[in-house]
């Protein structure tokens, strides 16, 4: 059992535990912080697979920008444990059973697949040099379209949150 296997299982255990804590914790601020922990472990997985560009972008965009936005909104609304709406016990149990059975079905379908190895620690697929070449050669038009998407999202957010007269 090599060092990469040990790192993989430690990261996976932290990711799953943090995700469960995010779902069950009553306070929304704690949920946001647990989700940030999940994003950091996923970035750890990217580093383990030598996808350096995506690891950095994941930290900057998800843990840095999106989760700060969530934290800002949660604190702006002053949400805490007392104001947290909870479903009743029976509906929660039904939700857990439904999601758990979906997980069981998918995992049992996974058991019949072939064993294929993932390249860890090396390979230049995830380096910025390689990704930039692919992005600006093959995916130039989607890249330009995403700027239009950002502009429309920006205008949309401003228009929605403007207090109507």
């Amino acid at each position: 059992m090599g060092i990469t296997t040990i790192v993989f299982f430690i990261l996976s255990a932290i990711a799953v535990m943090s995700a469960i804590m995010m779902v069950v914790s009553k306070s929304p601020v704690h949920s946001v912080l647990w989700l940030i922990a999940v994003f950091f472990t996923i970035s750890g997985h990217y580093i383990l697979m030598n996808a350096q560009f995506l690891a950095i972008v994941n930290i900057i965009v998800y843990a840095g920008a999106i989760m700060v936005l969530f934290l800002f909104v949660v604190m702006l609304m002053n949400l805490n444990v007392e104001s947290e709406p909870m479903k009743n016990y029976r509906i929660q149990l039904a939700g857990v059973v439904a999601g758990g059975s979906l997980m069981l079905v998918l995992l049992s379908a996974l058991m019949k697949t072939d064993k294929l190895m993932v390249q860890l620690k090396d390979g230049d697929v995830g380096l910025i040099r390689q990704l930039g070449r692919v992005l600006f050669n093959d995916y130039l038009i989607p890249f330009e379209l995403s700027s239009v998407l950002f502009l429309s999202a920006m205008i949309g957010a401003v228009v929605i949150s403007k207090r109507d007269k």
Binding site: T5, A19, A98, L110, V118
Partner: peptide
């Protein structure tokens, strides 16, 4: 590392997300 380990991890995270959507308000 086996690809099935990654698929299993992704399935677990996805299912936890679905459970969260179902049980929170």
């Amino acid at each position: 590392m086996d690809i099935r380990a990654y698929i299993g991890l992704a399935i677990m995270l996805f299912s936890i997300g679905i459970i969260g959507v179902l049980i929170r308000r």
